[in-house]
Amino acid sequence: MKKSLLLLGVLASLPLVAKGDMRIPSSVYTMEEIEEAKAEALEEEEPLIFVYTDPGTS
């Protein structure tokens, strides 16, 4: 269930990223925070999900 919620959250956020909108939700880690993201994923036993894009792309 957690996995599903996580995934839906990721997919729901894609339009924001794709439009070049830089309002990244606080629950989203940046690459500078990758170790924190790993720690949380390991604790929650969840996969890591990366959204990979150019924030300047409109």
Partner: peptide, 20 residues
């Protein structure tokens, strides 16, 4: 979830993300 900038973050991606 991790946001990765395709212009600046590729080198820092972990091996699994680079493979993906």
């Amino acid at each position: 979830m991790v946001f990765a900038n395709s212009k600046t973050d590729y080198q820092d991606l972990p091996a699994g993300a680079k493979a993906a």
